[in-house]
Design a protein around this nucleic acid. Structure first.
Length: 881
RNA sequence: GCGGGCGUGAUGGAAUUGGUAGACAUAGCGGACUUAAAAUCCGCAGCCUUAUGGCGUGGGGGUUCGAGUCCCCCCGCCCGCACCA
């Protein structure tokens, strides 16, 4: 149930009105009223105030999956607090909204319902827009767009062609990750544990000709920016994840000369980060899909069988851990650069073609994998790094490779050097010999963007047998998606590649005029979200963005979204922005100055006796137990988990808004838990927010009109009134700081405290202006969290215009300090009493007062005072013994 | 395995960064109002104890006048990466 005790929202509201007919807050009436008022005044249009500093706040835009869920409410409430706060602080704020609208779920829905992805998507957008509007967000809706609008993706196609022209994109044949369920290629970032990120199906490797963004060309700068201060406003763990993902390593690229009959290559290039251990080399290895392995597999059935075996090997985490190190000896040897020894060459199942050169030299003494392999095949194990506490003459490696520091042994010219010095020395020698060079290597690989799907941005290319891949001329853009009968989506695969779209696909080559074939792949939807923030800032018809307008807003000063995008979206957007910069669309290289990753919304799960999941509204929770609303059978209360449709532990934002109003939902989502942490949705929690709203309203109602009547603050106020003023200004100061630092839960705790302080305040005489100040502040400080309630209160108090337009209150420094403070007194570190002193009281006077305090004196009885520590304004500690 | 984070009442969480541990909220208990219940308002509330007092921030040790906060060891949980040479 939405209300814990089975009371209907309407009944609850009626009961309140009955109890107190004079003061009642009715969100159902107030919320639409103020939303209309904001819309009529066009309060949230960005770019109206050229004299103000600009502020761009953005939440990751939603995928139009059907309905808004409560996680969206939390996400957008955070951005909204920032937007409203910055607006009140005198900024010209850009806070836009749009739709990440291309993507596979639309095709899946089409497959299931027999509809068309386009209708499904735009229908969802209609619904979700209305839901978001009900939340009362301070959004500039005039800038709204969906990425599936041709007016948006036409520019994406232009960008693609421009990037192609500049060499940022290329087409190449390569092994790709093929998801057999989605029937599409996936980027490396979209393969998790060897499985498709959405389908969960084991990914197959397939050779295809597809398009790549050459993100590796920018690996160095993407990495450097993580550390050079450009991303100071990002959480450390997100930067760490990107750092790991880019995976920079320093090492040596070198080639071993090969000997053998009928070789496809006379040298074997390898990459290593441990050239210091070269003297410990006992074999060379290549990946099963390495060209050398393929060469021998073609003529040797034994090699072919081994390669096939490796390819059948699973790629899941568990498979990898279990997999035994295996190899196949090739009739080839490689010559060691320093010793001239001929090293055997193996195909080895643990070598990855995608990393480095797909080939290694193996030093079993100092690498566990190499050691396992060497033991299996009886190869030499030569220790060359001697641990600091070991004797070089007797040091041996048995079952465990030694990977720690030490000094070189059995290493010719390197002998005696510490390993960290031997490393550059070995590189230098190899370079002098002309066998290789020191290089930087990255784990990051190019971003494959081709997807064999319908519902995405078409890649504007025409393939001609004569002219190759030819860009679609600018005057023919956009390449739109051809209309397709909804029934086509019943068949898995890409409808763009079937008979029904022949007319769309078969077109003359723009260069030679002969019949050619349109590219049927569409772009990865992560392309759509890699530049939308720039388009929000500037939306000219004829180009992606107008540089001056884009740069007026960019970079996004505050970006807010889920941690699940720490790598994919955030890395792609950073990469894309660099491309935009190089094409002259913006000055900035980093799109997001400050990043905030918010936690998820969780909820308890419920299961009936048969193990079926139940929705929260199907369950009546009574204390520790729960019962089915329908039938009354006992229900098992399960763990608190991330809300998911499959476990039905979801709540509908509209139902919450109906019962308590959007303000209460927003407020609850930001109270209790720090915003970066997960928060558990509970009925009790949202009821607390609802109670707060009503108490604020009732408190303010008692001071109705007070803002109109009391402009001037009298000079000599009573102690009580001064105390209230101090509380008011401390609250202003505290809430302001809390919002600036994303401590919404603490800001809300302060509002609760302040509300308590405002209870029962008087409005006559001198108290009038003090009440006006306090209630005005209470209203304005609540406004970013509960904007509708705040407008209602503002109107009651007689404030000018809209609360939304009122400037943020300033805290008066002079009122932030007390004239008397309570100082705790400790005796030997334990609190024994307290004294009241002026904050600037002299140390000696404080000392004297502390020692004289009755409770303190009791604990000092019969003992000698050794030392008295006075921390001004904080504490006094008396050391006795 | 590597990297990062965390551990505070029944619960979510505060603690001015080394200075009164438990703000604020939720659940709970008591009271007022009510025929009654709900709602609302007021009050209580870390644990043990008769007040005095003692104990208390995962466990153990240390530094300090003083430790939730700093250092060392251990235990537990969460997240990311992972056959990356």
């Amino acid at each position: 149930m939405i209300l814990g005790c089975g009371t209907s929202p309407a009944a609850l509201f009626d009961a309140r009105v009955k109890a107190n007919p004079m003061a009642r807050y009715n969100p159902a009436a107030a919320e639409p009223k103020w939303q209309k008022a904001w819309e009529e005044k066009d309060c949230f249009a960005a770019g109206r105030h050229s004299e103000r500093p600009k502020y761009y706040v953005l939440e990751m835009f939603p995928y139009p999956s059907g309905k808004i869920h409560i996680g969206h409410v939390r996400n957008y409430a955070m951005g909204d607090v920032i937007a409203r706060f910055k607006r009140a602080r005198g900024f010209d704020v850009l806070h836009p909204m749009g739709w990440d609208a291309f993507g596979l779920p639309a095709e899946n829905a089409a497959m299931q319902t027999g509809g068309h992805p386009k209708d499904w998507t735009y229908g969802n957008i209609e619904v979700m827009r209305e839901q978001l509007k009900r939340m009362g967000l301070a959004i500039d809706w005039s800038r709204e767009f969906a990425t599936c609008d041709p007016e948006y993706y036409v520019h994406q196609q232009k960008l693609f062609l421009e990037f192609l022209d500049k060499g940022f994109v290329e087409r190449r044949e390569s092994l790709v990750n093929w998801d057999p369920v989605e029937m599409t290629v996936l980027a490396n970032e979209q393969v998790v544990d060897g499985k498709g990120w959405r389908s969960g199906a084991p990914v197959e490797r397939k050779s295809m000709s597809t398009w790549f963004f050459k993100i590796t060309d920018r690996a160095e700068d993407l990495l450097d920016a993580l550390d050079d201060g450009r991303l100071e406003g990002w959480p450390a763990h997100v930067k760490e994840m990107q750092r790991n993902w880019i995976g920079r390593s320093e090492g040596l690229m070198m080639s071993f000369p090969l000997s053998g009959d009928d070789l496809p290559q006379d040298k074997l290039p390898i990459y290593t980060t441990r050239p210091d251990t070269l003297y410990g080399a006992s074999f060379l290895g290549v990946a099963p899909d390495h060209p050398l392995a393929k060469h021998f597999a073609d003529k040797d059935p034994g090699a072919a069988a081994f390669v096939a075996e490796c390819q059948a090997q699973g790629t899941s985490e568990a498979d990898i851990e279990k997999a035994e190190k295996k190899g196949f000896r090739l009739p080839v040897t490689g010559r060691h650069p320093f010793t001239d020894e001929e090293l055997p060459v193996y195909i080895a199942n643990f070598i990855l073609m995608q990393y480095g050169t797909g080939a290694i030299f193996a030093c079993p003494a100092h690498d566990q994998r190499d050691l396992d392999f060497a033991r299996k095949y009886g190869l030499n194990v030569i220790p060359v790094v001697c641990p600091p506490d070991a004797d070089p003459s007797s040091f041996e490696v048995v079952d465990e490779a030694y990977v720690g520091p030490g000094s070189m042994m059995m290493s010719g010219f390197l002998d005696g050097l510490p390993a960290e010095e031997a490393l550059p020395a070995a590189i230098k020698r190899i370079e002098e010999m002309g066998w290789g060079e020191g290089t930087t290597n990255y784990r990051l690989r190019d971003w494959g963007l081709s997807r064999q799907r319908y519902w995405g941005c078409p890649i504007p290319i025409i393939h001609c047998d004569n002219c190759g891949a030819v860009p679609v001329p600018a005057d023919q853009l956009p390449v739109g998606l051809p209309p397709i009968d909804a029934s086509e989506f019943k068949t898995p695969g890409n409808p763009l590649d079937r008979d029904s779209t022949k007319d769309w696909r078969e077109v003359p080559c723009p260069e030679c005029g002969r019949m050619a074939r349109r590219e049927t792949d569409t772009m990865d939807t992560f392309v759509d979200s890699s530049w939308y923030f720039a388009r929000f800032a500037s939306q000219p018809k004829d180009k992606p963005v107008e540089k001056a307008d884009a740069d007026a807003w960019m970079p996004v000063q505050q970006y807010i979204g889920g941690i699940e995008h720490a790598i994919l979206h955030l890395l792609y957007a950073r990469y894309f922005t660099r491309n935009l910069q190089e094409c002259g669309y913006t000055e900035v290289s980093e799109p997001f100055t400050n990043l905030f990753t918010q936690g998820m919304v969780t909820h308890a799960t419920f299961q009936d006796a048969d193990g079926n999941w139940l929705f929260p509204e199907q369950v009546d929770v009574k204390g520790q137990r729960a019962f089915a609303v329908d039938g009354g059978a006992e229900v098992t209360i399960g763990s608190v988990e991330k809300m998911s449709k499959s476990k039905k532990n979801v709540v509908a934002p509209e139902a919450i808004a109906d019962a308590y109003g959007a303000d209460a939902a927003r407020f609850f989502m930001l109270s209790d838990s720090p915003p970066e942490r997960d928060v558990e949705w509970t009925d009790a929690g949202v009821e607390g927010a609802w109670r707060f709203a009503n108490r604020v309203y009732e408190t303010v109602a008692k001071g109705a009109g007070v803002l109109k009547a009391n402009a001037l603050m009298p000079d000599n106020l009573s102690d009580d009134l001064m105390a209230l003023r101090r509380t008011t200004h401390k609250t202003i100061d505290g809430v302001t700081g809390d919002i600036e630092h994303f401590r919404f839960n603490k800001a809300i705790a302060r509002l609760y405290e302040f509300l308590g302080a405002c209870k029962g305040l008087k409005t006559e005489g001198d108290a009038g202006p003090v009440a006006a100040e306090a209630l005005g502040a209470l209203t304005q400080l609540t406004a970013p969290f509960m904007p509708h309630l705040a407008e209602e209160c503002w109107e009651l108090l007689g404030g000018d215009g809209l609360c939304t337009d009122a400037p943020w209150p300033d805290a008066d420094e002079a009122l932030l300090t007390e004239d008397v403070i309570t100082l705790p007194i400790q005796v030997n570190g334990k609190r024994r009493g307290e004294i009241k002193v002026a904050p600037d009281a002299a140390e000696d006077a404080v000392k004297e007062a502390a020692l004289a305090q009755a409770d303190v004196a009791r604990f000092m009885e019969g003992k000698t005072v050794r030392k008295v520590i006075v921390v001004p304004g904080r504490i006094v500690n008396v050391v006795v013994g």
